[in-house]
Design a binder for these strands. Structure first.
Lengths: 204, 204
DNA sequence: TTCTAAAATTGAGTCAATTCTGTTTTTGTG
DNA sequence: CACAAAAACAGAATTGACTCAATTTTAGAA
């Protein structure tokens, strides 16, 4: 098994994702029929199911791109954080939030979140959990960095704190995507306000 | 519009909910077919859709009972909290968690949460958001009570703190229902560990 | 080049939620 | 009681995700 078959496979994958992403944006997740995605991608319905277990997994592939991009952007902040606990957290979480609607619309996020809770053991469900964990780990890494820099007390339970910060942000983000009218700036302000309580407690 | 019609209506509502609750438990949410619920409740499929907009709303009615019971149980703690911030939070959140699987299985919770994110504007989606808010308010009320008792610093932003505590618990609870193997005791321990950071920060 | 097994594709068929339309029941009025 | 309008009901028809048996394509050997 070498060239041709692998190339066609990769190509079909790409075509399916592109068709799906376009249709999800245009018609919404529910509105995008598998049949239409298949037609657009120039494959048959059966082929789509040969590549993805279900409709949710197609969305999953797109979500994964988005989150990986976010994780990547976050690395810079962890490596070189602002010299102030509040700003450091705000900068990292701000990056997450600002990048979040790049590939995905709010409706797509809603669907993705829904599927990940509904089917936590499906390929997508597990991938989504892994992405959440990766974000949590990045926040923990930032906290550890701040502790190393002497900006956060050493006796703070960084593990628990990282989870607390992530959980709160994530829940706020869920509420944000649930309301179409919600603005990013308000979300960031609200999170900053909550984190202020923590910042006061953990600073040296 | 008086007696008979209203009585029959209430009766059908009850029969549908009872049939659905039993079937959701036995066969799971996905496994419970509307047709079967209809047969069990001795109404037709069409009638069910006359009473509920969709399958999710039937589940919604059951979730609502559960959460209202939880809210009720929580009132006692708010009125008479343990004289220690950590214990007070632990007691209230403990009640939420311990009561949570009374009517609803983990699978039912997963479905309910999924639907509420997927369709935030459906009757159920809005009801679920309202229930979340009610829980947040109850936590805020507890914090206010503790402030009044002089157990929590007066200059703490109780509004933000209540949301922070709720968000964290809720997210932990979501993870809990996503893993069938997860135990309640571990959930409570993890939440206590996270709240310890807050408790240290807000105590007088 | 020819052939065969493995891999992949196809699209008609299945299944279950939801919708739709015609029928039945209830209500209030004369 | 008889009747017309309103409300509720029934179940057949629709819709769209997903499956599966039959067909086509590819890889590699002779």
């Amino acid at each position: 098994m070498s060239g041709l078959r692998a190339r066609q496979k990769a190509d079909r994958h790409r075509r399916i994702i592109e068709a799906a992403a376009a249709l999800f944006r245009d018609a919404g997740y529910e509105g995008a029929k598998i049949e239409t995605i298949a037609a657009q991608a120039e494959v048959s319905v059966g082929t789509i199911y040969n590549y993805y277990q279900n409709k949710g997994d197609i969305l999953g592939a797109i979500v994964s791109m988005e989150v990986n991009e976010v994780l990547n952007a976050g690395r810079g902040v962890v490596a070189n954080p602002p010299a102030n606990v509040g700003d450091a957290l705000d900068t990292l979480l701000g990056i997450y939030i600002e990048h979040s609607l790049h590939y995905l619309s709010k409706e797509m996020w809603r669907q993705a979140m829904a599927i990940s809770t509904q089917l936590p053991d499906s390929p997508f469900g597990q991938a989504y959990t892994a992405l959440d964990r990766a974000l949590t780990e990045q926040i923990r890494a930032l906290i550890a960095r701040l502790q190393a820099l002497g900006l956060v007390r050493r006796d703070i339970d960084g593990h628990a704190l990282g989870e607390l910060v992530f959980n709160n942000m994530n829940m706020m983000f869920i509420e944000f995507v649930k309301r179409d009218g919600a603005r990013m700036a308000e979300l960031r302000t609200a999170i900053r306000r909550q984190n202020r309580i923590l910042v006061a407690a953990i600073g040296v």
